[in-house]
Design a binder for these strands. Sequence first.
DNA 1: GTAACGGATATTGGATACAATAACCGAAGT
DNA 2: ACTTCGGTTATTGTATCCAATATCCGTTAC
Lengths: 219, 219
Amino acid sequence: MKIESVDIALTSSAASIICEALKKAIVEGRLKDGEPLRQDEIARLFNTSRIPVREALTMLEQQGLVATQRYKGAVVAGISPEEASEIWEFRALVEGEVIEAAVPKMTAATLDEAQTHLAAFASAAGPMEWGDWNRKFHIVLYRASGLSYHLSVIEKTLDRVDRYIRAQLSLSNGLARADTEHRAILAACAAGDAAAAKALTRQHILGAKANLLESLHRD
Amino acid sequence: MKIESVDIALTSSAASIICEALKKAIVEGRLKDGEPLRQDEIARLFNTSRIPVREALTMLEQQGLVATQRYKGAVVAGISPEEASEIWEFRALVEGEVIEAAVPKMTAATLDEAQTHLAAFASAAGPMEWGDWNRKFHIVLYRASGLSYHLSVIEKTLDRVDRYIRAQLSLSNGLARADTEHRAILAACAAGDAAAAKALTRQHILGAKANLLESLHRD
DNA sequence: GTAACGGATATTGGATACAATAACCGAAGT
DNA sequence: ACTTCGGTTATTGTATCCAATATCCGTTAC
């Protein structure tokens, strides 16, 4: 007879727990651009020494989420309008290609799950939830492609810019427009029209890019 | 009057020095897939404690060059044929797009530098040099695009697979074929034909993918 | 008043020491 | 012979302590 076994922290080191918590705070925009991340302050928050905190900050720096200067510490890494513009072009390129490859492999379960996320997105209460469901909707569709390397690059890129997407969704028409475009993308996927899904995804991303740059320009 | 000032280790921490050294060894294929990386052994090599070694390994894990298991240590991360196939497709997508954007921005200096690397490639002595000049040739052309985010993704991807490219160059016809294709790509760039440069780059990468999979299949 | 210098404080980088876990090995029992 | 248990060793994860550097602030010279 087998004993009921539960994985107790088999994959979680203190560093990765801290890294994930900080990443979540950055991605959700709770930590603002340029905000300093003090090692001993974070260490106190997690009841650890500074060693795992430093490893977590090293991970985040490698992911481009924080910028570190020797003997000066880490700050949340911002993004310039030029970088934003380029990253949205990159997203259109890669996400367009991935959804095109994904459409022929989508199952009913894929479409169901996407539909669920779309409904949750439409009836969500605040910017944080919008961002979560928006991302889940897209990722579910991409995942059907089975292109794990492409997916990992997409996820890292989204980590880098997700807070700007959330801000975008909060603007006037941001939510309604995204919802409309999501429905069109899902319809194309359900119809098995890979070319249309790719084109709509590209428009979805490049339209958001134009909006973002416009709002940045107004400041 | 101003004093001649030299940056003395302003940007170099022990961790990043160790990281770069290990990365070079992995990229050049001197550390084989699955080879364990012991913390205290590396620490002795660099005359440091294990702390900066651990940070270096953390960086390499984030870059996908090593795989770590809790309480078991880090090993050089290999790559499956499926992953290789997907990564070469990814390269064709991104590098094709980047060189297309780069062609209109190339200067005479860009083409000169690429030509120099191409000549060095053709007259290089061994696999290591071939790999170095091959990579420099492509990167110089890509850099003209000014697409820094795309470039950073390409560099990280190349770090991950460069040793397989080097192995490929060492095979029969690998070097001659690469040289021929490089000349064609450079000619298209010099002629200002962005579409041709893109198509030739894609063929260059996808042909190498086919060769790689074939050689993997023979084993 | 202002700029340059010097010391006090805060913060990070690294070394050492200890705790937790895995791998190995040998002995005992069946 | 095979399995299982226990202990020993090797290796990693973390805490504590010290060194190196930056920042702040008062003082002083002009």
